[in-house]
Amino acid sequence: MSWDWQFFLQDTGGGETYFHWMMSAWGWTLALSGCALALALATGTVMGIARTTQVRAFVWIGNAWTELFRNIPLIVQLFLWYHVVPQLFPTLQEVPDFVAAVVGLGLFTSARISEQIKAGIQALPRGQRYAGLAVGLTLPQTYRYVLLPMALRIVIPPLTSESMNIIKNSSVAFAVSITELTFFAMQAQEETSRGIEIYLAVTFLYFISALAVNRVAAFIERRMRVPGMIGSAK
């Protein structure tokens, strides 16, 4: 086995080097993961909260949402958004591939986040909710000022895992024409025949991306710590 890293400086035939191409592919991976994570956090939190209310319609919607998106494999969901939905609703044919991938990956992850938010809220003693309501807060106020400040701190560790997962899961998006890192790896190794070097470089980029998320989340966790509460024991 002989190493050859020189090819990263070769021209791809399109006026840039393989290294440039890999950096832009990395950019797509991060952009896709970031947008999907924002969508997942927003919808997942809403659905997770809905499932802990006493309003039956909200609970039903939250449960249905979660079960729908976590019981279908991610790649199948991406194909549904990319191939099937635009056929059913022709107006959606103009939606860019990137948006379809963000929606697919984001909603898949939202089901997992919904589950974690729900678990975080349910981990609190039931008395907290009653206390909030007893002092005259409305239900939304009880969530805003009593339940969520504690529940969200509790779920920072699982949400960190989920944020790292979304970067790794974004690799599936090559199947719906997103030119991210996995796409780069498959394509560039065919063109250069240097598969081992390419997969090593791509592995390293995935690794440092996920590790960076982990460090950022650890920082947030430290800054959010409240003495005397769960997660502050260090």
Binding site: Q189, E190, E191
Partner: peptide, 15 residues
């Protein structure tokens, strides 16, 4: 198709 030389061919033609 991803992972074929046609991707490169297309890129070269485009340029």
């Amino acid at each position: 198709t991803t992972g074929t030389t046609s991707v490169q061919t297309l890129r070269k033609n485009r340029r």
